[in-house]
Each structure stands twice: as C-alpha cells, then as structure tokens.
Design a protein around this nucleic acid. Sequence first.
DNA 1: CAGATATGTTGACGTTGTTCACATCTGTTT
DNA 2: AAACAGATGTGAACAACGTCAACATATCTG
Lengths: 215, 215
Amino acid sequence: MRIAKSKRRTSYHHGDLAAALTSAALKLIARHGVEGFSIREAATLVGVSPSAAYRHFADKAGLLAAVAKQGFARLALEAQDAMSAARKRHRSAAAKAVAAFEAQGLAYVNFAVNNPEQFQAMFGRYGASSQQPVHNVCSTDQSPYELLKRVLDELMFTKVVTPAARKDAELLAWSTMHGLANIMLSHSFMNHDNVNVDQVTLGIVRRLLHGLRLD
Amino acid sequence: MRIAKSKRRTSYHHGDLAAALTSAALKLIARHGVEGFSIREAATLVGVSPSAAYRHFADKAGLLAAVAKQGFARLALEAQDAMSAARKRHRSAAAKAVAAFEAQGLAYVNFAVNNPEQFQAMFGRYGASSQQPVHNVCSTDQSPYELLKRVLDELMFTKVVTPAARKDAELLAWSTMHGLANIMLSHSFMNHDNVNVDQVTLGIVRRLLHGLRLD
DNA sequence: CAGATATGTTGACGTTGTTCACATCTGTTT
DNA sequence: AAACAGATGTGAACAACGTCAACATATCTG
C-alpha cells in the first residue's frame, strides 16, 4: 500500500485535524476499501504524523466510526430531501405517503450503490456499528430504521393494526430494503451490469408495498 | 493479539495442511472475528510456520475464501435437510412447497445467527465473494440464491407468470431473507435479546410469502 | 507574562502479510 | 537401489501497520 504524497502546512497546529482526517479517511476508503484503510495513510495524506490522529480518535475504529456517522447524516439528509420532493408531486395524503415510501427506498439503495465503501463503514462489521451500539455512531433522528418507521406510520395511519403486526411490518420493510441495498453492491448472485438500479429498486419497493397490506 | 501455543507433529510433512488451516481459520474467526484473523496465528495453531500456508493458498483472502466455501457447502446441506424434513410433514404439493420455503428461510437465518463470523466470511466484503466472482467460492448447486430460486419455482409452478415478474419475485425474496439474516446478526437497530429468532423469522417469511402473490 | 492545556512529533515496540533462499520429504525413472 | 524432480515445510527478512510514551510547541486562561 503505497503512501501518497503529503500536504504541507505552515502552522504547527492544523486547525481542524479531526474533520480533515475523517474526510481523508472517506477518500481513502473509497479508493482502497474499508479493509485496506490505514490510519497512517490518512495522516500522511493530511500532512501530519500518524500519532497525531490519536489526539482526536481513540483508535482506528474510532476514525471509521466518524466516517460512518457522517454517512448516516448524509443518508438521512438525502432521504428526507427525496421524500419531500416526492410528496410534492401528489395531492392526497395516501398518494403522498406511497410516494414518500418509494422515494425513501430509492434514496437508500442509491446511497449504497453510489457510496459502497461508506455504506460498508456504516453497516459492516469492520468499522463501526456492531462493536458499539448504534447510538454512538448515529443519532436517533438520523437512524434509517427510525426514518423507515416514520414513513411506514404515515403509510398506515388510517389502518388499525396491532402493535405486533406493525412491528412485523417494520421489520419486513427494513429487511427488504437493507437486503436489496446489500445485494446491489455485493456483486454476488447477480450480474447487475445491464441493470437499471432505480427501475429494479422501484419494482421491489412496490412489490413490498403490496405485500405490506396488513389484512 | 496473543498467539496460542502450537501443536507438535512428528513428521516433517503435515498430511493435509490445507484442511487443517481452513479448520483452524474457522475456529479463530469464530473467536476474534474475520478482521482479527491472521494467517500467522492459524499457522501457529496448526503447528506450522507461517510461510507454509502459502503453499496451499495464494494469500490471506484465499484462506478466507476456503472458509467461505466450506460455509456455503454446510449451509446448502442444512437448508436442504430442513426443507425435505418440512416437506414430509405435508401431503399436497402446495403445502409442501410452502413448508419448504419456510424451512429454507429458517435455515438461512439460523445459520447466520449461529455462525455469524463464517456468514461474514461468506458475504462480507473482507474475505471472499465480492473481490472475486462467487463461482470461485461457491458452486452453483450450493448457491443460496439458486436454492431459493428452486423453491420459488416449486411454489409457483401452477401460476403462469412473466419471466420479469418471476425475476422480481426472486429478487424480493432474496433481498428479504438476506436482509433479515444480516439484521439479525448486526445488533443494530434492534434489541433482539428478548427475541425468538425462529418465531420472528417465520413471521417475516409468511408475510413475504403473502406479498409474493403474483396477481 | 506564566503556567496549564491542547495538539503535533519522534522514535520505538510488537504484529502483520508476504517473499526468497534453503531444507526435507515423496514419488518416479532409470 | 540410486538419482532426480516436484511438492511441501522452514528461517530469516522486508515493509507496513496500530499504538504508545516521552518530548516539543502552540494556544488559552489567569
């Protein structure tokens, strides 16, 4: 793993090393993958000695957790944008809810496909989330699971369902979306070279929606 | 990472180092996780010098791929056993198909929950499957995706559906099962301490089955 | 201005993946 | 049986890694 050239800086102190390191980490993760990432390379890229990183992060996992955190924030933002845009295209509350649900699924899968390595840092076993509880790495209002729960509520607000059935519906929807996202970027058991991600995703989301009818 | 004591052996040659190494790797992966696994520790555990491993595997990823391969074989076996047992409990072909589908889902999720690290080696980005095409690591008749396709065929053999709809159904089912398995072992966005894995899984599988109606 | 605190550097330790030259065993050919 | 070739294991080495302790320097607070 060749180490890239270092930037120079004039002052002894960096200014915002923590942010610079997470952003460098994001770049490097995108390049060599999460497992190929090294704290030393990130430090060198930022133009700082490797041990400087330890003033801002407990260890390698800590840095990766910061990358994951950033990812959750961005995903929540993108999903919410997509949802509110989708809602604007319809009049009735029911149609709005359906459109929002579809938009959320599309946003989720697209995020995974377009940022596979960050997605891996967010959900993978290596970097974050699974060694530590998710709350350390993702606030409640950015949790994709919470987001999905909310749009599901919107979708079923008229129906009267038992709490258990609601919980089942949540888990089913979350499983399907999470599974689809993982499959889309795993390059396993699929040849999605000639595949339109949006189209396939929308197909699955609609079928899921259809299956979610709680009757 | 402390290295365990080594076994002794009498002869210069080992006999079946490849198998011994994969089995040691499986043990160690179960202990420290995939990312904490080292080829040196496996070699030491088997009682052999680290470089000996390179006579049997190209590199670390190669060894992990072997572990993954073993996992696919075992999963296929368990799933098929569970399916044929389930089929025996019913008379009509339709009921058999439904029972087999349920059994397959249960087997899949249970395998993931009971062998989380091997599951990770099979599907994770680190060890295998994603750097190399799956065929290197899992033969067609052991592919969980193929298995699921077959049981889906059985399930829908009466219905006439377009190939596109069938493909959609396959992807939906595969996404849901794979997603559920991942969620079950991610300890994220769920507190499944007081959770009966079989019961929850069966609930999801039945709901999926319900959503799969191709009308 | 002075001390305290935050931040960055240097150098080191132990571990890792991997390779190369060498040793030893096994099987085949003469 | 002797000689050889191929397969398999060893030992020492290399560069890179995560992490830490001792030290240096900048910034903040009084």
